[in-house]
Each structure stands twice: as C-alpha cells, then as structure tokens.
Design a protein around this nucleic acid. Sequence first.
DNA 1: TTCAGATTATTCAAGTCTAAATATTCTGGA
DNA 2: TCCAGAATATTTAGACTTGAATAATCTGAA
Lengths: 177, 177
Amino acid sequence: MNDELLLLGLLRREEMHGYQLVEFIERNLSACTGLKKSKAYFLLEKMASAGWVVSDERRSGKRPTRRVYRPTEQGLQVFWKMLRKQCAQFTPTYFQDDISLLFLDELPAEEAVELLKQRRGAMEELRERMLNAPPHSGASGWLVEHQVRYLSAELNWLDEIIQRVEEKGRVWNKSDE
Amino acid sequence: MNDELLLLGLLRREEMHGYQLVEFIERNLSACTGLKKSKAYFLLEKMASAGWVVSDERRSGKRPTRRVYRPTEQGLQVFWKMLRKQCAQFTPTYFQDDISLLFLDELPAEEAVELLKQRRGAMEELRERMLNAPPHSGASGWLVEHQVRYLSAELNWLDEIIQRVEEKGRVWNKSDE
DNA sequence: TTCAGATTATTCAAGTCTAAATATTCTGGA
DNA sequence: TCCAGAATATTTAGACTTGAATAATCTGAA
C-alpha cells in the first residue's frame, strides 16, 4: 500500500511511464523507499487492472512500447483514502540486525566488540553521506532529516551496547537469564 | 537471512518443531521480528533441503506428523557465519509511513495535524505497552530497550513535524520547492 | 566512422511470503 | 456427559518481490 500510495501520488503530479517513475524515485526518494523496477511495473499493471490508473501506449521507433500512466478518478479517491490512513497510523519497524545481538554470547567478547565497531563504521559512513547529500526540497527534505536523526539515535544506542560488552568482558550477566 | 539466523540460533539451543518455534518467537521476540507461521515452515523446509537442519518425524495419535528440527554441523557453520556478518553490518530501515508526509500538502493543514496526532497516539500507546511489558531477560531485554528508545526518538521527531505544520498553517513553504 | 559500453525500457522465471484452509485434540461449563 | 470453542500443527493456493534477461538507442573516444 505504501508503494501504491507513492506511485499514485507521483502520477497525480505528472503522468509517467514505469522507467521514469523508478528513475525519479531512485534519484530523489532513495531515503524513504527501496522500491525496485520490476515491482513498480508489477504494481502499475495491478493498479491498471484495478482501475486506479489508465495508460496510453506511446510507440517510438522499434523500442518496446512505453505505457504512460495517469490516475483515474477512482485512483485519486483511493490515493486520498490511503493518504489519510497512512498519516494517522504508525507502523513499527523491526531492526533487522538486532537478531544477531540475541546470540552475541556465542562469540568471544573481544570479537563481538570488534564486529560491532565495524557496524558502527557502516552507520557513521551512511550518516555522513546523508549529511553531505545535496539538500532536498519540501517534504522529501524532512524525510532525509528523519533518517539522519534516526541514524544519530542508533549510533548512541550502539555505543552504549558496545560499552556494556566491553565493560563486562562478556555479553550479559548470566544471572540475568 | 535474518529469520534463518533466528531459527538456527533457537534450534541450536533446543530442538523444536515449527509450531513450537513460532510460539516461542511470538511470545518472547515479538519486539524484534514479525516472522509468520507459514514463513517459518517454509524456511525450515528450505533449510532442511539445504542440509542446514535435519528433522525427526514424531507421530502421536492421528495428529499431523510433527517434524522436530535440529541444526547439522553445516548448519552451525552457517549460523556462525551469518552471525558474524550480521553483527558487523547495518541495514538501514525505511520508515513506512513517511511516504504520506511527501503528500501532506494534499490535505488541509488542520486535517493533517489532526491525523498526525492520531499517529502520535498510536505511537505513545505502543511505547506504554513496551514499558509495562514483563521485563525480558538477557539480550532480548536489550532489544525491547532498543524499541523503547526508538519510539521515544520518533515521538520527538513527530512532535516537531506537527509543530511545524501547525505554525505555518500549511505543510511547508512553497518557496522551498 | 565505428563500436564498446552506458542508458533507456520492459518482461520473465523463479523465489519468497501471507492468509486462509485443514484437521486433530484439549478444556471447561451446562 | 457433551459440545462449543480454544489450542495444537501443518499445508496450500495465490499474491508479492526479486534478479537477471532482453533489446533498442545513445555517447564519445580512437
């Protein structure tokens, strides 16, 4: 629904074909979605058969036919409905790499610290990249800001974890269990 | 890979069948994964055919045959490899509901604020639930702590967004675009 | 000019994931 | 006792998602 909201919203601003959409998203919105090409095509087709969008075929030379999409009236209604719903909801996020912390005691404490410092490096690098990226305008700037804040909070959290492991010389008190 | 790491790690501690695994995860690890029943069964079968786990059939009465899994030597190697890899990496997270902020200017500012306050309510409720949950032990306690911190940071962020929208009487300066 | 490699644009097969269906056994209240 | 509904366990059909294949056109350096 997330991706559909995005596609509908972009198409509402300007009709586009699949490749154009994906290009735009990759260039400008990579901070907030990882939507892949083939999924975008799939969703466009799905939305077309649901009547949310319609397409014009535009043929040029011997290239594959491009289908330029725009939302229907129904599509716009769906868009606003989804928009309101998303605005009001909160979808909690799972931290992918936290699973590894569950099993940190399988590793010697020194190695664990070493590995977590590598993780820290990756986080910091990403944070730098986002800080130095060309400024985004409007709401997409907010989303970059959101990511940067999130990364800062995560860095703080990880630092504390690393410290705990370092101090104890092991991952956590067995007596905790 | 995430889920596989989790399953292997749990099976290393104690052999279990699918239902048992999923029960355990839902009861104790719902803060860090949303692994569904059918996916767990799927992964167990996949890991079995990859030779990472083996299963004993245990028949009791006329119930469907239970398959109790445990990791093979190869499975353990894979487990430690994945564990090291996950420890050292950082997988950035996309904020599902941020997409809606991109299109916040489609809504009257008052309505936008109203909807975002609903979102805030959902966040706060979740945070309360996690704070009041029975304390977890060992690393899984850390993961709950991680979620709580994350929720607090998100609340701060959302509050600022709400304030910006309220102050301006609209979502963002058109001149920003 | 020419042709290797980048860009434009879509499709496809295969792999992943979910909701719902299936089927047995347990539990507790009338 | 008896039976409705909860708990125990797995399977399956179909929906979603991905990586790689396909194919035409553009670019620029030799």
